[in-house]
Design a protein around this nucleic acid. Structure first.
Lengths: 238, 238
DNA sequence: TTACTCATCCTGTATATACAAGTTATAATG
DNA sequence: CATTATAACTTGTATATACAGGATGAGTAA
């Protein structure tokens, strides 16, 4: 009986992605959908608004809901960014190397980035993402240790987010991102197969929990030729 | 009597941005806000959900709405704002040079990008954005001529979007973006003050109207040192 | 003192109704 | 025939009510 509108959202999203509705087509009217799902129009509207927000449909007053070209790439915040080869291609050979994993007190830089008090314990994790035998991405993560006491290489190699959400029961909710292009550092040169590329794409991520507490600061450093960021942006109300 | 919830949204957003509410603080409860604005709780909730969607607040069940550090959407290329709005907001000295302005039938490439039929007329506009005396950004726009018959250099130098929305009465609604980093073309080198930077940030934009019709394809080509993209991303429902 | 229960806040979901406003096809009108 | 008015759709906004479920502090019981 719970989250009827989310259920409907998921069903419609699935149907759009799988081609059950094709781009340009119109969805059934809100009234019809309400009948189909034996629910109220308001509940249908919640589901449709989610679909619109995520780029699946466009609602036009007086006309209906037009299906857009499949919301091709989905980035949960946990996915951070999509990089060219990884975005939709699950088939790619991919490996993660944990190059560093240590807990230490926050220095001045991290106190600022993580809004942490002096001496707060911070996990620093360096991970290299290898795709088809090339070391392409360098993820430099900083986690507040107050949220995660123990962190193993095994967890880092698989998914830290899964561990946090499933084992620790915290919910990651939103993130602020910043993308810039910089000159590679010595660290970048040492970790990555830069192939002579003279610049590096830096994605800075501030990741927050459900309750608005800042939990992680990440720099994801990409070799430029393999970097790709896709976004669906609705005009903000003004 | 119209758009009460949007009005409330704007007022609250304004108050947050101007520091009337500070980060970490809680907004009044939905019940209180409903009383304050003499409206229903549902209307308040619509306004609050917009605020949450745009990164102003975080709603926590049982607790309330926590004000986030927002308002700092300070640089290119977030959301759907145009260059002029951004530069203006930054207070930088900016100038636009129109280097090309011509109408021509769509070639194969544009037919694909703009989903235009063979022989459809397309405006091609090249604009250089000069900031503080440096030619930093090269905007390569393609507009479907069926939506805009006449386009003057004057319009291009000020704001094409304003012209379209105010004079033609069309509403720009959403866009799909793609950010990559590439090697500069001859065109880039000719137009921009590259200062030896060996790469260029390319933001591809597909811009849609209200009624889901694709209207514009743009490549915004940035010198890497001046490029910055900021984004607020909420985890997608799943 | 400590631990637990419970009343009482808060937000989240579901429903119903009313009317406004944009779109479209049909019928009426000149 | 062409044009216009109208009826019948569509989505958008505003409101009311009910109950579920998380958070919190007060008060009770051990």
């Amino acid at each position: 009986m719970q989250n009827k509108y989310l259920l409907i959202y998921r069903q419609l999203a699935e149907k759009i992605q799988s081609g059950g509705f094709t781009a340009g087509e119109k969805l059934p009217s809100e009234h019809e959908l309400a009948e189909t799902y034996t629910t109220s129009r308001e509940t249908i509207r919640k589901a449709l608004n989610q679909l619109a927000q995520n780029g699946f449909i466009q609602k036009v007053q007086g006309k209906g809901s037009i299906v857009l070209e499949a919301g091709k790439y989905d980035f949960p915040v946990s996915g951070l960014v999509s990089f060219r080869e990884l975005a939709g291609a699950l088939g790619r050979e991919q490996e993660t190397h944990v190059e560093k994993l240590e807990k230490k007190p926050a220095d001045a830089f991290l106190q600022g980035q993580l809004q942490a008090p002096e001496g707060a314990e911070i996990w620093e994790v360096h991970r290299i993402r290898e795709i088809d035998g090339e070391r392409i991405i360098f993820d430099k993560d900083f986690f507040k240790a107050m949220f995660v006491d123990q962190l193993t290489e095994e967890i880092c190699r698989t998914s830290i987010y899964d561990y946090i959400e499933q084992d620790l029961g915290m919910m990651i909710s939103f993130a602020k991102k910043e993308i810039t292009v910089e000159e590679p550092t010595e660290e970048d040169r040492a970790y990555l197969d830069l192939e002579g590329y003279p610049m590096i794409v830096v994605v800075k991520n501030y990741v927050y929990f459900d309750d608005a507490s800042l939990f992680q600061y990440t720099e994801s450093r990409h070799r430029p030729d393999k970097f790709k960021f896709v976004d669906f942006a609705r005009r903000t109300q003004y």
